[in-house]
Write a protein that binds this DNA or RNA. Structure first.
Lengths: 344, 344
DNA sequence: TTGTACGCGTTATCAG
DNA sequence: CTGATAACGCGTACAA
């Protein structure tokens, strides 16, 4: 039977609908025997409770929602798994919602909030430059994971991430330490005001600390409308740099995908990695370890970030904690794609 | 204001709820002026209709659901985009639902069917060996995309894919044509009854056509409980083969991810690709093109499959077409990772 | 063209 | 411990 409802089950068991409801939702006030019987009948009948009706009725679900913008970012996978584990521990369920690259994550969030009534929300990906007012309209605590916002203003949401500025600086310093001075940079669009900007600034800071002038010609910015963090973009940007005839002995891409795309472009120009040019990425994606050469990168501490994000959010839900900024340290993974500059 | 309902909007506009409903749902019987006014008020008020209530009330949504099992499979991204495009053309909306690797896709399907009331469903990924009865309980037309089921029994669902048997045979023949006779194979668990089995059979067939005996020692099967199509698995399986001391001049992995993992393992053993050993994959993932060396593979015609899947499903919905098997041809992409056997 | 009233499947409240 | 019944917010038949 297809369209079964709680009523059908009630009839089958010879009880009232509320008793069935109690059985399903682990309510305390119910006789164990009746409960067992009802659950058995439910299992036999392939009955599936209607979630729409549930959500409609329920004032607040014991759940949090996780909004993921932009798939393909493999490292979100791990993050999500970690988040799910934490939810389970707390007895919360975890609503996963994907947001298309071109969609506005906050609009989606508003819908999800209304439909699923979660008690809190975690955002992965996206730039997240939204008017404060609109965020507050959500009416539930929010945590941005992996997205470190630029600036220090009081925020209405929590934030858990690495310090993109410092980590980027760390990577640049590592490359400088290898003797590279002409370091090409592949990065987010000029307009970017979050991660991209911070990573760019970290790069600039490291240079200036060494008294090396920042050279705009060595930076390839993504196109705001067309590009994403993808292999193709990395390839295109590196190609562009090469065609302009820029000379550099290292290339630092602000994501591992970009780095891999760039490697291909370098290879096609007959440039050996790391012999002629070192290449570094950012994120610590799985696949960088399997690439040939394996990619030097900054690994984001995914488990920690997941755990901390969930922890912060749960505390915010309980009113125990105010939205704050949590920073975790990334790990510089030195692999095959980087080496000392030749002729030093 | 947070919890706004259709009533609030009605009050604000001085009209009845049904008029508001009509305005929102593009009903014909409504005065253009009142409609405009209502829509304006809605926009100003940040009102969001409650989807749970909508779904509860609506008998059937003009939508199809797409269930994706196992992210990480980059090539599903393209497929989903294609599907979405086709839906839009038909005026359908497209409900995307992710299924965890360890979850049962059919259970999820049952939930989604009940909650969102789509008119049809498309399944991506998974093995899909489910009892016919349970599938029929879904009560709506289903299409498996990319999953070609083994056997020829009459099915209750449609199927759009490449012919995994033939394509696998094609790849093996290509490798044989290069002079390779000892071809290692990285493939699905022994228990696999769908894609994995077909690809294995294609490999065997190609060998036997040439009178080359099938050698079990050259095949590395995934572990049913632990492994997936991942870099790590490819690495592990190739490593295992190497450690057993098997000698082979080509390695055919039944997915590009496996192939890339295997490349890494070969490299670490000092084996040059394709100099000492050719490597081939399957699927036509983006990243295979950027790998060094780029990976020879069978490219699945994603756009065609997406288009055909949607087309078949819509026809099944309209009752125009019975569930059937649609086969598309894959494309052998010869890239850098394969070459003629040395010393021929 | 518009408004009123009912019901979709649940859960929660309350009286038994 | 259990059952009837009132919401939840919306779409829609039907009446106006």
């Amino acid at each position: 039977m297809a369209g079964m409802t709680i009523k059908d089950i009630a009839k089958k068991c010879g009880v009232g609908v509320s008793t069935v409801s109690r059985a399903m939702n682990n309510h305390p006030d119910i006789n164990q025997e009746t409960k067992d019987k009802i659950l058995r009948v439910i299992a036999e009948s392939n009955y599936i409770p209607n979630n729409s009706a549930r959500n409609l009725k329920r004032s607040e679900a014991k759940a949090i929602a996780v909004l993921v913008k932009g798939l393909g970012n493999t490292f979100f996978g791990e993050l999500v798994s970690g988040l799910e584990r934490e939810c389970e521990k707390k007895g919360y369920s975890c609503i996963l919602q994907h947001v298309e690259e071109q969609d506005n994550e906050l609009d989606v969030a508003l819908y999800v909030a209304k439909e699923k009534k979660p008690r809190g929300m975690i955002f992965l990906g996206g730039n997240f430059s939204h008017p404060k007012e609109k965020i507050e309209q959500l009416g539930i605590p929010c945590v941005l994971s992996t997205i470190c916002t630029y600036g220090d203003q009081e925020q209405s949401f929590g934030t858990v991430s690495v310090d993109d500025f410092q980590e980027s600086r760390k990577m640049t310093e590592y490359l400088l330490g290898l003797g590279h001075e002409k370091i090409a940079l592949l990065t987010a669009p000029r307009e970017d005001e979050s991660i991209g900007k911070l990573r760019l600034m970290g790069y600039q800071k490291a240079l200036s600390d060494r008294g090396i002038p920042f050279r705009e010609e060595l930076v390839a910015y993504m196109d705001a409308s067309e590009d994403r963090y993808s292999f193709a973009t990395g390839y295109r940007l590196a190609k562009k740099l090469l065609e302009k005839g820029e000379s550099f002995t290292a290339l630092y891409a602000t994501s591992d995908t970009l780095a891999i795309g760039a490697c291909r472009a370098l290879k096609e120009s007959g440039i050996d990695i790391p012999g002629d040019c070192s290449v570094a990425g950012f994120d610590g994606m799985d696949m960088g370890a399997y690439y040939i050469p394996s990619i030097t990168t900054i690994r984001q501490p995914v488990e920690q970030i997941a755990k901390a994000s969930a922890g912060l959010l749960f505390n915010m839900i309980k009113g125990k904690e105010k939205p704050g900024k949590l920073i975790y340290e990334g790990q510089l993974l030195i692999r095959e794609s980087t080496a000392k500059r030749k002729n030093m």
